[in-house]
Nucleic acid binder design. Structure first.
Lengths: 144, 144
DNA sequence: TATTGTTATACTCTATAACTATA
DNA sequence: TATAGTTATAGAGTATAACAATA
C-alpha cells in the first residue's frame, strides 16, 4: 500500500512533467498575443458567463482601477461588450463575444494537435493502458 | 479501443483540472513574492546549473537588456552570484545560492501539503486505484 | 566584424488614493 | 454611509536601439 506522502509526491511530479512536456496554461495564454491579464479575463468570462467588473477583479486578483483599461482594450478588440445591469444602475456587466470564443477555440486546437503528436510516439498497447489510467484519474479528481 | 482524439481530449482535460484543483506553476511562482521573471530565472538555474546571462535570456524569452536589473535584484536578495568565465572574459556566469534552494524547498512543501489535504478526501480504495493509475501515467510520460 | 553585457529610453502593466454616481 | 466603476498618478516590468569591452 502506497503511503499518502508517496502519492502526493507522484501527483506533484505528474503536474510538473505534464506542464513541461505538454503545455502549461500560462505559456498557453501568452500565445494569444494579448497581455496575460486580458487573457485571464476572457478565460474567466467564457467559463463563468457575464459578470460585473468588481467580481472579475476580485476573482482574478486584479485591482479594480486596472480593470478599466483592460476592459477598454478588450472592447476595442471586439472580445467583450459592456452593458448595464437592470437591477443596479451602478453595475456594469461584461460579456464575451463570439470573437473571444474563436480565439480560444483556435488555441485549443493548436494545443491538442501538439499533444496528439506527442502521444503518437507511444505503442498501441502503451496508449491503451495510458488511456485507462487517464480515465481513472479524471474520475477520482471529480470527487475531490 | 479509444481513438487518439479521445485520449488527447482527456489528457487536455486532465491538465486543466489538475491546474485548477491543485496548482499551476505560474500561480505557484507568484507565491514566492518576487516577480515572475525573477522566479523563472531561479527555477532555470536550479534545474540547469550556472549559465551565462545571454543563455538564460534566450531560454526564458527575456530580452538581454532586462536581464541586468533582474540579476541585480537577485544578487541583492542573495539568491544568485555573478562570476566571470575563465575562458571568455566577456561572459558573466550566474549561479544560484543555497538561499534560492531554500526558497523553492519551502514552496514545494507548502504545495505538497495542500495536495495531501485534497487527496485525504478520497476513500482508501479510491486512493489505491488513483495511485496505480498515477504510476502508469508517469511511466508512459517518461517514454514520450 | 561578431558577441557579451550594459545603458538609455519609451512603453505597457500594475498598485494606491481620491473622485462620481448610484444605492 | 457604502458600493461600483472611474480618474489620476507613480512605480515596476518590458522591449528596442545604441554603446563599451572582448573575442
Amino acid at each position: 500500500m502506497d503511503c499518502l506522502d508517496n502519492i502526493t509526491n507522484n501527483l506533484y511530479l505528474l503536474l510538473l512533467s505534464l506542464n513541461r512536456r505538454f503545455f502549461n496554461p500560462h505559456e498557453l495564454l501568452k500565445n494569444l498575443n494579448i497581455p496575460l491579464s486580458h487573457a485571464k479575463v476572457l478565460f474567466y468570462l467564457i467559463h463563468n458567463g457575464p459578470a460585473p467588473i468588481s467580481k472579475i477583479a476580485e476573482k482574478l486578483c486584479i485591482s479594480r482601477p486596472n480593470m478599466t483599461p483592460i476592459i477598454d482594450k478588450l472592447v476595442e478588440g471586439g472580445y467583450v461588450v459592456r452593458f448595464y445591469s437592470e437591477y443596479d444602475r451602478r453595475v456594469i456587466l461584461i460579456k464575451h463575444t463570439e470573437n473571444a470564443c474563436g480565439l480560444f477555440k483556435s488555441l485549443e486546437k493548436t494545443t491538442k494537435d501538439s499533444i496528439e503528436e506527442k502521444l503518437k510516439t507511444l505503442s498501441d498497447d502503451e496508449l491503451q493502458e495510458f488511456s485507462q489510467s487517464l480515465n481513472t484519474l479524471l474520475n477520482s479528481i471529480k470527487n475531490i
